[in-house]
Amino acid sequence: MFKSSPYMNPYVAGVCLGLVLLAAFVIMGRGLGASGAITSVVAVGVNAVSPSHAQGSAFYREYLPENKNPLKDWLVVEVAGLVIGGFISGLFSRRIKLTVDKGANASNRQRLLLAFFGGIIMGFGSKLARGCTSGQALTGGALLSVGSWVFMLAVFASAYAFAFFFRKEWN
């Protein structure tokens, strides 16, 4: 068995991440994102099942441009890159492993159930906030957007406030 490499120093990783974000600003005039691309996938899925339903919704329509493939979108391609980059990094540092990541005392079933419901809550929240940790907290944070800072502080405050209830999942 090969031993996986240690993680990068957080401040070094932060500077690297900041430079990628800065590159996006300088080259494209826009920042990074994640939840928007996942919404495009949802909108395309709904449109495939029921085009009339998707076209009748102001929410889905925004992610379904008329004259082009909705998946040929900057954010969707960026997230496709994110998936590839994460995999390359995992290979590089020997961290690709089929596993369930959880605290030592949590069961797989409990962890997967909470991952699913946590995902539902997060997906919903990201839409209400018009973005996630990438598009709002990181990008909007660096652009000093008022709404992004309110979002970021709310995320941290809320996660700390509710951490007590999920302590058994992570211990």
């Binding site: 929240g125 209400l128 996630c132 940790t133 502080l153 405050a157 509710f162």
Partner: peptide
């Protein structure tokens, strides 16, 4: 809505363990 979305998002974060990108 961004304040409310952030509070909801935070619950999802500590419950599910990830954010959309991660």
């Amino acid at each position: 809505p961004q304040l409310a979305g952030g509070i909801i998002f935070g619950i999802g974060f500590v419950m599910g363990g990830y954010c959309p990108g991660t």
